[in-house]
Design a protein around this nucleic acid. Sequence first.
DNA 1: AATGAAATACCACTATCGTGGTATTTTTCA
DNA 2: TGAAAAATACCACGATAGTGGTATTTCATT
Lengths: 218, 218
Amino acid sequence: MTIRVAVIEDQKDTRDMLAVLINGSEGYKCVATYENGEDAISAIPELEPDVVMVDIHLPGLTGIESVRKLKALCPEMQFIMCTSLEDPENIFNALQAGATGYLTKSTTPTKILEAIADAYNGGAPMSSQIARKVLTFFQAKEEKVNKELDKLSAREQEILDYLSKGYRYKEIASLLFINIETVRKHIHNIYEKLQVNSRTDALNKVFPKPKGLYALAI
Amino acid sequence: MTIRVAVIEDQKDTRDMLAVLINGSEGYKCVATYENGEDAISAIPELEPDVVMVDIHLPGLTGIESVRKLKALCPEMQFIMCTSLEDPENIFNALQAGATGYLTKSTTPTKILEAIADAYNGGAPMSSQIARKVLTFFQAKEEKVNKELDKLSAREQEILDYLSKGYRYKEIASLLFINIETVRKHIHNIYEKLQVNSRTDALNKVFPKPKGLYALAI
DNA sequence: AATGAAATACCACTATCGTGGTATTTTTCA
DNA sequence: TGAAAAATACCACGATAGTGGTATTTCATT
């Protein structure tokens, strides 16, 4: 069983180095190399490699954008980002775009081959330093949420939860075995604390939407 | 430099095994073991270990809840979850609670020690299989979104976008330079197509929330 | 040229929501 | 124990949202 690999990398020496490494190893074959994202996008869907190594820095279309487009066309294909940059923003964007691995350029040849096999076998190859940065992104998201949320009492949070699910006042009242007027009062207090005056505004304040979701969907 | 480790694990044999492993290794010291989360929470903030190994399955307070509380008290402390479960929900919740590592019980002693050192040094030790599951959580989105969304005409999508931002009918009307009755009509059509009858329900149908987010925040 | 979908506009009615009060009981915590 | 915070309940009013109609115009496609 041979893993078919493609490489997108603008620097000729790195590109050739990768091709030689891959072709020189049992079980791996480099089936194509590209020096920019545009060429890769027009050729890769036909070629159907198993794994694609992508440089983040590409002239024209960036590596991240290339992955986003390719992943949409070929959901089964595995993408590994290769870069010198470790900043969280790039890591996050790359992974969100559909990459499953993230290697820095200092990675040893052995580790590169391992990473390719790993991605092919359902893993997500990345150093634990990078994994930590991913986690930071995860955990950072919550903070802001709680900041608004912990202004509210437990009961208020409970009611807000029902609001978020679209329940009407009287439904909430019967679910909580309290009077509708009490529900109304709680919600009034919630709105005051959050400085809003509608259900939707309250929810948007407490559960901020992931950016770009709608823009993307259009 | 010695890394000070604490262990929270209800099964005596596993607990003892970990303690022996840690104390038998140069550079590591097991400073305490606990058989449940409650004991750990009352003792660990005083003790200030560098790294805490936490079993997910604990009697009473779960491992995840224990980490959440401890992390709030001691943000610098590193937590590694140990479990036999690899299901995405647990992984996600544990990491969101503040754990930085996630080991399965099949991990070898050497890898366990490596993981402890790794967490201590700013990494996030986890297998690449687990890393992939984390990514899946990141990437799991869209799909359903578009399915509901493309039932709607462009104008309807535009109006739904305003609804999601909390605008009132008359605000939408003046933003789009159309009559409020037209807005009302569009929204009525939107609700019909989506088979709902309130703003919140429509938004929940088109922009499904990442599950577990709110439950976590409580 | 005809059909149909989408966008526009208007009306009347009901339900629900949001505001602004007051007041009692329960819980929490200093 | 005493004060503060939270939860409960009630009322009245105006604003907004949602329902169910009809009807005209525009635009794309057959």
